[in-house]
Design a protein around this nucleic acid. Sequence first.
DNA 1: GGCATTTGACCGGC
DNA 2: GCCGGTCAAATGCC
Length: 254
Amino acid sequence: MKSYQEKVMEKLLHGHGCANQLKLIMDHHAESDSSMEREDLAKSVLHCFTDALSILTDTNDHHQDDDQSNNSSARDSSHVLESNRKPLHKRGRKTSMAESSDYRRHESPNPIYHDGFLWRKYGQKQIKESDHQRSYYKCAYTKDQKCEAKKQVQMIQNNPSLYSTTYFGRHTCQLHQAYETFPTDTSDPQDSHMIRFDHPDSSTHHIIHLKDEKMMPSEKAEEWSSPSEYMSSEVACAVEAFGFNPVRTSSDFS
DNA sequence: GGCATTTGACCGGC
DNA sequence: GCCGGTCAAATGCC
């Protein structure tokens, strides 16, 4: 019996082969003008990715169950006594987060912007200069792995709704651990997916929000040399034109 | 019961 | 004193 990794690899290799065929046809479109053949190949690629995602989704569900039982014992052993709480004078801000040099901003129509990390909400405030409340999130691994990444989410526009997500600090948590517990519910037809690309010579990053794109497993993205190896040619061309490097992918589950 | 979220209070910077 | 960021008890959900 095949393991789920083998099943996923089989699907991905098939999809990769179909994508290569599609690319060849598109490169030599003068010789072959079969739109039906291209459409079939595109469907095959999409189908392979959908199957691979389904397998991963099922597997993730089992991993989450395992993780929950393992984490519960870890939490018990790291139980913090009441007397170990931070003194009151440690509370409150030290410096403005917006004045921090290490922050990145992203705007999205979706308030629940999934960037591949797990976040825990720790506050919400009505901001004077805005009509909308601002939500504060910490990395879910703040305690376990002393990850100090944070983000703020705030609605900046009503119609159409637009949310600003500002990131502070860098994740020091183990990425693979975050992905293993990352929900990947693809049952929703409105489901959308995102890819993050870090620019090679700067600290900026760019995020592509993909509707109806089926993505590959995030950990694979770092192994590929070209975006065309794991995403649709349309998106890959756009990404390669920008010269960005793929870093990670994620999917919405709202 | 355990977990995440909500919410009011607290804190430090300005 | 105002404001934004954080804490932690209360609350809700599963």
